[in-house]
Simulated assay, not measured.
Amino acid sequence: MLAAYANAIDPDDPVSGLVVGERPDPQPREGWTTVTVKAAALNHHDLWTLRGVGIRPDQLPMILGGDAAGIDEDGNEVVVHSVITSPGWTGDDTLDPKRSLLSEVYDGTLAEKVLVPRRNLVAKPASLTFEQAACLPTAWLTAYRMLFVKANLAPGSTVLIQGAGGGVSTAAIALGKAAGLRVWVTGRTEAKREAAFTLGADQVFESGARLPERVDAVIDNVGQATWAHSLKSLKPGGAIVTCGATSGPNPPSDLNRVFFLQLQVLGSTMGTREELQQLLALLDTTGLRPQIDSVLPLSDADTALKKLAAGDVQGKIVLVP
C-alpha cells in the first residue's frame, strides 16, 4: 500500500527524512481492525516525529499521521481516535501513563490503510465529509477538551485564546463561538487577527495587549512568550488551560499572583473517545465545520509537510489516498 513514512531523522530538515512509497499492508491483530483511509489530516506532531521527538531511530520506518476518517471492515463510515491505551486500561484515555498516539508506537494514518483497536473507532456523521471528519481527532478534540472539560466554560463566559493561527487556537475560536462564549483572541500579525474575526472572534488584540477586562479562562499553547500575559488576563479564580509550549516550557511562574488570586493552572492533552463523539455531535447539529487549507493526494505528502513546516497554512491540510 502507498504510505508516507519517516525513514530517517533530521532535526534541522525534518522533511528530508520523509519517504512516500510502498509499505506492507497491516497484519491482523486480536482486538484491532483495519480501516481503509479516505482522508487523513496533518499535524505538527508529524514534523516532530521527523525531527526525532518521541521516537527512536530503531523504530523506523514509521508511517506518519494520527488523524483519519474512512471505512471499517464492516463498511461503516468511521473516524479514528488516535489515543492508543494499554491493554485493560479503563477510565480517561488520556490519563493512561502507557498511552501513545498513532505513529509513535504503531503505524499511523498517512496510508491507504491503518490498523487500530476496534474501540478507537467512532461513527462518522453523514453530514460530515471524510475530509472534514479527518480534521477533528487532534487539534479540534484538544480544543474541545480545553474549553468544555478542563475550563468547564458555559455560554456567556469570556475566553482569551492566545495565538490566532495555530490548529488548536483556530478550532477553539470556532468552537467557542458556536457554544455561545465571548471569544477574544490575540495575534502577532494583522492577517492572523483578521482571520480570527472570520472564524468568529468577538474581539482581537495584538499579542500582549492590555484587555478591556479580565477573562474567565485563557487557552494557551504558546507557553513562555504568552504566559505572563495569560496570568495577568485572568479574573480572580480564573483558569489558564495549557496543551503545549511552542515558544518554550519554562516561563516565570508568578506564584504570588497564582495563589493570591486563586488562579487555576490546568494541563490538557488530546481527549477521550467519548469527547470525540461529543465533538462530532456538536458539529453535526450546529453545522460548524473545520477550516481546510488544502486537500492534496497522499502522493504529495512531501509538498504538504513542507507547507506545514513553513507555516504557510490557514486551517488543516488534508491528504487523500
Rank of each mutant, 00 (worst) to 15 (best):
H44E: 02
A217H: 00
R56D: 15
I317F: 03
T269S: 10
A239W: 00
R182V: 12
L110A: 11
A154W: 06
S127V: 11
A126G: 10
A69R: 12
S207P: 00
R118Y: 00
L282G: 00
D107V: 09
L115N: 11
G187L: 01
V149T: 15
S169N: 11
G208T: 13
A164F: 11
M146A: 09
G70Q: 12
E190Q: 15
D216C: 03
S230L: 03
Y106C: 06
L181E: 12
D72P: 03
A309N: 13
F205T: 08
K307H: 10
R119S: 12
L136I: 12
R119H: 13
K177F: 01
A40P: 13
I55P: 04
P321E: 13
S268I: 04
D254L: 13
E213N: 05
Q314M: 07
P290M: 09
G176R: 03
L102R: 12
R56I: 00
Q203E: 15
P24T: 10
G156F: 09
L101E: 09
G163D: 14
L296N: 03
Q277A: 15
S103P: 09
P249L: 04
V78R: 08
W32S: 06
K124Q: 11
S82W: 10
Q277S: 14
I71E: 13
V265N: 08
D284S: 15
D216I: 02
L47H: 11
G166E: 12
K113G: 03
R51L: 03
Q224S: 13
A178Y: 02
L279Y: 01
A178P: 00
P97E: 09
R56C: 04
T269K: 04
G91C: 07
A151G: 07
T90V: 13
P125C: 03
R182H: 14
N120G: 06
I317P: 04
G108F: 07
L231S: 09
L50Y: 02
K316E: 11
L95T: 15
G75V: 10
L308A: 04
L18I: 06
G108I: 07
V105F: 01
G91P: 06
Q162V: 08
A245R: 07
V83C: 13
R29L: 10
Q291Y: 07
S103M: 08
S299T: 15
D74T: 15
A196K: 12
A301F: 07
D254P: 00
I71N: 08
K98A: 13
V122P: 00
A164V: 14
F148L: 11
R182M: 05
G187P: 04
W32I: 11
G163L: 04
R29V: 09
G223V: 05
Y144G: 02
N256E: 10
I55T: 12
A69D: 12
E73W: 02
I292S: 00
N76W: 02
P137E: 09
Q59G: 04
L95E: 15
L2W: 04
V168G: 07
P236Q: 06
S233Y: 06
I317W: 02
L319M: 08
L199S: 05
G167P: 02
